[in-house]
Design a protein around this nucleic acid. Structure first.
Lengths: 123, 123
DNA sequence: TGTTTACTACGAAATTATTCGTAGATAGAT
DNA sequence: ATCTATCTACGAATAATTTCGTAGTAAACA
């Protein structure tokens, strides 16, 4: 399943905040940009139909939950992105990102650890 | 400038092959998927209007050239992707990619070199 | 109880991206 | 000179995404 940009915004809110009502999600989205309440509602309904969200409609005000994990979703997005933007070359993507973004010492160290880990797997 | 997926396909052809006619680009695209000749033509005309391509129309058969560099374009795509998919956390993207894709020994070494380089810049 | 408020459902408009058909022009072959 | 193949331009159909208005209903409140 490939969430659209608008759907990703909503998933991010739910991943960060846990189960939420449309009202709560809309409040969050409104911090970043103009968006009508029914727009958020409609998106969440569509996502529910697609299986991206689950919901509890036992009370009048429904509560929505992300039905896909952040990890799995990002894995899928990365695969697609590596293909379309880097023609499959993951390492070129990595180098582009590292060259472009300031990462903290801790982050760099963590990446190094991961690299060493990968080295050992290869041996 | 944010190229769409279809536009990226065409840019990749031009980056790899250099200045090309619509016919040549279409032939390349056809290797991967069904696409009509006039579809490719129209896309390239639109990209020309947007400034993504330049063209030489001195002869009947026009020759198109990428007007944006692969580097700059990928930089922009990465920025956008880090924002929408990883809420700005570049290091999480890197780790996701490294964990997910098999990179060759040479690629891993190159990434390590880059990391050491960044370390020194930080000092 | 009657009124206001908050919510969902639904349809459809608006926007963006992708696709292709048709028409007209030019160049090359016979 | 005519015919055929190839090219561009252009308009418009299709599809995918995002947006919101309206209607109906239930809850909260005066």
């Amino acid at each position: 399943m490939k969430p659209t940009d608008a759907e990703l915004e909503i998933l991010h809110v739910l991943w960060a905040s846990g189960p939420s009502t449309v009202r709560q999600v809309h409040d969050q989205l409104s911090r970043n940009r103009e968006i009508g309440y029914t727009t958020a509602l409609k998106l969440m309904q569509i996502m529910y139909e697609k299986g991206l969200l689950s919901r509890d409609d036992s009370s009048k005000t429904h509560t929505y939950t992300a039905a896909v994990s952040e990890e799995d979703t990002q894995r899928g997005l990365v695969s697609r992105f590596v293909e379309t933007a880097f023609r499959g070359s993951a390492s070129r993507l990595v180098m582009q990102v590292l060259g472009q973004h300031k990462a903290s010492r801790e982050e760099l160290d963590e990446i190094k650890r991961l690299l060493n880990q990968l080295d050992h797997d290869n041996d």
